[in-house]
Design a protein around this nucleic acid. Structure first.
Lengths: 325, 325
DNA sequence: TTGTATGCGTTATCAC
DNA sequence: GTGATAACGCATACAA
C-alpha cells in the first residue's frame, strides 16, 4: 500500500505538505491541493489509520461490550449504537461477553490495549473495582457502578409499576413476575421492586421466578414457565422482564390451553420490534432504545472531550398495550 | 499510560529486552522475565496495540459488513463470527450497511484505512468492481463475486427444493414463494429457482412475490402478505425465504381466519433460534449458521497466511419440520 | 543473553 | 506558505 511518502514524492512536495492537505491545516493554494489530491487518487492512497491513531493518540474506536448480540434487545441496541457511532466518525469494536467473566475481563484488556477512545458496557459480570480500574471514558447501561461512571437506563421502576398497575386494573388477582437472575446490582431489578410494591399496595397476591445467574438461554426460559405453571396453576397475570420472556409465557399459556388475555394476562418489557411477530400482539413497556443508544455514544464522546457529564441518565418508558392484557 | 520505555527504565533493562519478554522471543532467563513481568504489573502496563499493529503491519482486526445486526439471522451470524474471531485472537469491527450504498462504500474505505486483516462481506449493494478493488483477504456470504474471492453459503438450491417438495408432498396445489428483492446476484435467489423448478416438475400452480430492493423492513413484510392474500386468496402453501417472513405469513393467516397447517401450509428458511417463539412452531430449512461463521473466519485467516483457499463453500441445509406444514 | 539503531506511517514543532 | 526533523510506541536486524 502506498504511503504518504509515495504521494509526496510523486507530487513533488514534502510529506508535511501532504499531511497538511490531508488534514486541511494551514494555508494551502487550491492548485497545490488539487495536485496532491490527484496523486492520492492516482495511487489509490489511503491514510494509515493505525499510524494516525498512534501519532494523535486517538483511535476513533468505541468498544461495546454486551452479553449477546443475538438477543433481540441487544441486537437493536447495538444497531443504534453503531449508527450513532458512525455518524460521529467512530468505529465500533463489538464484544460479546456471553456473560462469561473471563471473556469480559479479557475483552476489557483488549480494548484498553487497542486504545479505544471509550467503552460502552452493557455486560456486568465483574466487580465494581474491575470497572474503576479501566481509566477510560466509560458509560454503563443499566448498572450503577460509581459516581464517576455515568449510566444510562430506562425508568425501570416506573416501567415495572406501569406494567403491574395495568395487570391490577384489569382485575388480575394472582400475579407472577418472571425475569433473569437479580444477582448483580442491575438497575433492571427495579422492575421487580416496583412489581412487588404495587402488588402489595393493591393487596394482590404475587410471586416471582427467575432464571439462573447466567440465564439468557432459551431452554431456561421454557423451563421457567413450566415451573411457574406447575407451582401456581392459577396465575392470572404475568409481568415478564423482557418481551422474549413474555413471548415464552404466551406460548406456554397457549400450549397449556390457557386463553390470553381471558385466563391469563401478560405484559413484557423492552418494546423490541420482533414483538410484532407474536400473535396476539404482546403488551409491553417500551424502552427508548434509540434514545438510550444515542445518549450512550454522546456520553462517551463528551467524556473524551473532557466535558463534565451527569452521572445519571434515566430515560422515560412508555406503556404500549397490545392484545395480551 | 506507561510505555515500554517506562517499563524498561524501571526494570533497569533496555526496551528490546522488554519487547522480547513481551513476545517471548529468544532466550531469556527466568529471573529476568520475572523482573520485567513484575514491573509491568506494577505499572499496570498494557502494550499499545496501535504501535504493535503499525510495526508488524498486522492489526488483528476483522471487519464485518452486514445489512442489519438487528435482523435475527444476521444477529446469530454476527454472534458466531465474533466467537470464532475471539478464539483466534481477532477483534471484530462491526459495520451495519443498512443496505445503504454510500454507507457500505464508506465502510469499506474505513476498513481499508484501519488496516484490518480481512473483511467478511454479508452486504452486497455495490458492483463487482468495488469489491475487486479492495485487495484484502475477503470472504463473501451468499454472493459470488469473482473466482479469487471465496464465498460461503448454504445449499440454497437444495433448501428451496426441500421446502417446495415438502409442500407438494403434503398436497398443496397453489404455491407462493415470498422473499426479498432478487435484484442482486445473491445466491439466495437459488431458493426461488428451486421453488419454481420443483413446482413445475410436479405440475403445481405457483407464484412469487418479493419486497422492495432495500426491503428488510418489517412494515414491508406486512404489506407483502396483505398483497399476497388479496391477489391469491386461495393459496394453500407458502415458502418464505426467511423465518421472519414465515412468521409474518403465519400471523397474516391467523389474522385472516386461515388455519395453519389445515388451510395453508408454511415453511421458512434460516433456522433462527427465535423461530421457537412462534406458535405453532414454524417448519424451516435450517442453515448451518455456526458452521458458516466458522468457515468464514477460517477463510479470512487462511488467506492472511497466504494459503490458497477454495472459492466455493456450500454448506448443507437441513429440513426441520415444525407444526406449520 | 542483552543492547543500539532503525523503521512502521503519521502528526507536530520548529525553522526557513 | 513550505520543508526538515523529532516524536508516537513498538519490533527487529545487527552488534556486542
Amino acid at each position: 500500500m502506498p504511503t504518504i511518502k509515495d504521494v509526496a514524492l510523486k507530487a513533488g512536495v514534502s510529506v508535511t505538505t501532504v499531511s497538511r492537505v490531508l488534514n486541511n491545516r494551514g494555508y494551502l493554494s487550491e492548485e497545490l491541493k488539487k495536485k496532491v489530491y490527484d496523486t492520492m487518487e492516482e495511487l489509490n492512497y489511503r491514510p494509515n489509520e493505525l499510524a494516525r491513531s498512534l501519532s494523535r493518540s486517538k483511535s476513533n474506536i468505541i468498544g461495546l461490550i454486551i452479553p449477546f448480540v443475538s438477543h433481540p434487545f441487544f441486537g437493536e441496541l447495538t444497531s443504534h449504537i453503531e449508527g450513532h457511532a458512525y455518524r460521529n466518525g467512530y468505529k465500533l469494536l463489538l464484544c460479546n461477553s456471553q456473560l462469561d467473566k473471563l471473556k469480559e475481563f479479557e475483552y476489557i484488556d483488549m480494548l484498553r490495549s487497542s486504545r479505544v477512545d471509550g467503552i460502552i458496557m452493557g455486560s456486568h459480570t465483574l466487580e465494581v473495582e474491575a470497572y474503576r480500574q479501566i481509566h477510560l471514558p466509560l458509560v454503563t447501561f443499566d448498572r450503577q457502578i460509581s459516581p464517576e461512571i455515568p449510566y444510562v437506563c430506562s425508568d425501570n421502576y416506573r416501567g415495572g409499576a406501569l406494567a403491574t398497575g395495568l395487570l391490577a386494573d384489569k382485575g388480575c388477582r394472582k400475579l407472577a413476575h418472571i425475569g433473569v437472575h437479580p444477582h448483580l446490582n442491575l438497575l433492571s431489578h427495579q422492575r421487580y421492586v416496583a412489581f412487588r410494591d404495587v402488588a402489595e399496595q393493591r393487596g394482590i397476591w404475587h410471586t416471582s421466578l427467575h432464571t439462573d445467574v447466567n440465564g439468557f438461554k432459551l431452554e431456561e426460559y421454557e423451563a421457567l414457565l413450566e415451573q411457574l405453571f406447575l407451582e401456581h396453576p392459577d396465575i392470572d397475570g404475568i409481568f415478564a422482564s423482557s418481551d422474549i420472556l413474555a413471548a415464552y409465557a404466551l406460548k406456554a399459556c397457549q400450549d397449556s390451553g390457557r386463553r390470553v388475555p381471558e385466563d391469563v394476562r401478560i405484559i413484557g418489557y423492552d418494546g423490541i420490534a420482533q414483538r410484532k411477530l407474536q400473535n396476539p400482539l404482546i403488551s409491553t413497556i417500551r424502552q427508548p432504545i434509540e434514545e438510550i443508544s444515542k445518549r450512550a455514544v454522546e456520553l462517551i464522546i463528551e467524556q473524551m472531550q473532557g466535558k463534565a457529564v451527569a452521572s445519571e441518565h434515566i430515560l422515560p418508558v412508555e406503556l404500549e398495550e397490545g392484545a395480551t392484557t
